[in-house]
Design a protein around this nucleic acid. Structure first.
Lengths: 162, 162
DNA sequence: GTGGAGTGAATGAACGTTCAGTCATAAAGC
DNA sequence: GCTTTATGACTGAACGTTCATTCACTCCAC
């Protein structure tokens, strides 16, 4: 995780809290600024535009999640064990950072999300799931469902276990 | 399903298509009007405000889904059989009406959604799932996951089957 | 001719963005 | 050490645009 200035962090925190509550359209830049104790103009020293701010906030938190999870991806333990560990930590992360998950859901279903991809459609986690699917680790007909929503994983776990 | 005027239907169709593509903020009333071949003012003969239009559109489509599914809820067949049938028809509905599902996802994660409830948290379908949970029809630890997303149901089905 | 449906230009508020100006601190000159 | 000059982060009022909403008007069925 690259280090970011305190001010930028304050802006991120302010935006996360507000957008999660009021939505993208419902949170003017002036409000983000006020809540972060900076002037409106300051936002534009750190970000090119509102769009860029909101996209940066998404990527910032996405990276946070990824680093919280990627450490459990290794070939030293069984696939099943890795799967459980990752799910557990993803679950924990989202439970303790509900505002992050809420922001993700807002962002993903908004026009800001240009890629139009679900949350974990890139990176190591994606590769891990993909490998599992190819190696028949999952017993289900429509494996693409795995990548829909971390919340669904609980169901998958029962499936694997039975 | 109560009958609605052709004009209202045209407005709904226009809004559905545009919002799904451009998002709530990205679709001005003027655009909805133009796309429906009516004047901007006409929208206000049928709806009180933009908010009301978008909420009405949500409820309109929700009712559509519900009537498409509720007919399969009856006590004449086994729980399992009902579950399969409902899932199949929900799935079919969303596959043939992708823009409806996309609109739902946008709406549910927007500040317009005052109830802050997932999609099928009310009505007969909810009661059906609730009954199944209480009667131990599902073998999983976190049954509330059932109500998250119709797409996840495929996973649940494998779970029931195994 | 009256009533009601429909129109679309006009209105005004909200908001993203800009930029001239402030101020604290650092560097340079004496 | 003290004064002057330069720097650039930061500010917030002002600007221009975008849009939801309105309303004076037209059109048409009866």
């Amino acid at each position: 995780m690259e280090e970011i200035s305190e001010k930028k962090k304050a802006i991120f925190e302010s935006a996360l809290k507000l957008v999660q509550k009021c939505g993208f359209h419902g949170t003017p830049m002036s409000m983000i600024a006020k809540n972060a104790n900076v002037a409106a103009g300051t936002l534009y020293l750190y970000f090119e535009s509102k769009d860029e701010l909101l996209t940066a906030l998404f990527n910032y938190n996405k990276k946070k999640v990824e680093t919280a999870v990627d450490q459990y991806l290794n070939d030293e333990t069984s696939y099943k064990e890795q799967f459980f560990k990752i799910w557990l930590h993803l679950y924990k992360f989202y439970i303790t950072n509900t505002e992050v998950l809420k922001y993700f859901e807002q962002y993903i279903n908004s026009p800001y999300n240009v890629e139009r991809n679900p949350l974990h459609f890139r990176g190591k986690l994606y590769e891990f799931l993909d490998k599992g699917i190819k190696n028949n680790q999952f017993f289900m007909s429509r494996t693409e469902m795995l990548r829909i929503n971390p919340k669904s994983w609980g169901v998958v776990i029962s499936s694997i276990d039975s």
